[in-house]
């Protein structure tokens, strides 16, 4: 019995010890977490959004955090769009592999733009989108990118009002007291 007890305690210590080491899987590999996308899907979305609203003299969709807007939107408000995203992204990935032998996120800017222009017109091979259409997915992600970039930061995008600053809109609005009589 005695040895059993020792063994039991030893086992407990081991179990506890291993729990202690669990956190050694530091999350630094994937510092950003998305509720609705895999890391690969996220990098494709990020790349698409950044081409829809690219950085120039002013920050683009990536810096504005548009993907956070989309992630939150699909998580909280429109889970019904998740399917379109999943199918749409799978099509983009397959098509990009077939055309360029590379993942969409890894393509050059010119290649990405060329693909998106064809998608907008519905001219990529339809077989990559058996359950949705390339145009439906393009229109959806375009609308969401615009909303995320130009809407209020309370929804996850437009970080620190980047788009408002670009368009020379002061925000918050300056309003002094508004007295009945001066």
């Amino acid at each position: 019995m005695k040895s059993n007890r020792r063994q039991f305690i030893k086992q407990c210590m081991l179990l506890y010890g291993s729990v202690l080491f669990l956190p050694s899987c530091r999350p630094s590999a994937a510092p950003v977490w998305y509720s609705g996308f895999t890391a690969q899907e996220a990098s494709a979305i990020d790349a698409i959004c950044e081409q829809l609203i690219p950085a120039d003299d002013y920050p683009g969709a990536r810096e504005a955090g548009v993907i956070h807007y989309i992630d939150k939107l699909l998580y909280q408000r429109f889970p019904q769009h998740k399917q379109t995203y999943r199918q749409g992204l799978a099509g983009v990935e397959a098509c990009s592999q077939a055309l360029y032998g590379n993942s969409f996120a890894e393509l050059t800017g010119a290649q990405q733009i060329a693909m998106l222009e064809l998608m907008e017109r519905g001219e990529l091979p339809a077989r990559y989108w058996p359950q949705t259409t390339q145009k439906a997915f393009f229109e959806l992600i375009l609308a969401h990118t615009m909303q995320g970039f130009y809407g209020s930061p309370r929804h996850g995008g437009n970080k620190d009002y980047v788009s408002y600053r670009m368009m020379k809109l002061d925000y918050p609005l300056l309003i002094g007291q508004n007295r009945y009589e001066k």
């Binding site: 209020s152 930061p153 309370r154 620190d160 009002y161 600053r165 020379k168 809109l169 002061d170 925000y171 918050p172 300056l174």
Partner: peptide, 19 residues
């Protein structure tokens, strides 16, 4: 940083516009 009650978040002063 300014706390914007309406948005329930701060906006760093460096991001405020000069009016």
């Amino acid at each position: 940083a300014l706390y914007m009650r309406a948005d329930r978040r701060h906006l760093a002063s460096k991001h405020l516009q000069t009016v």
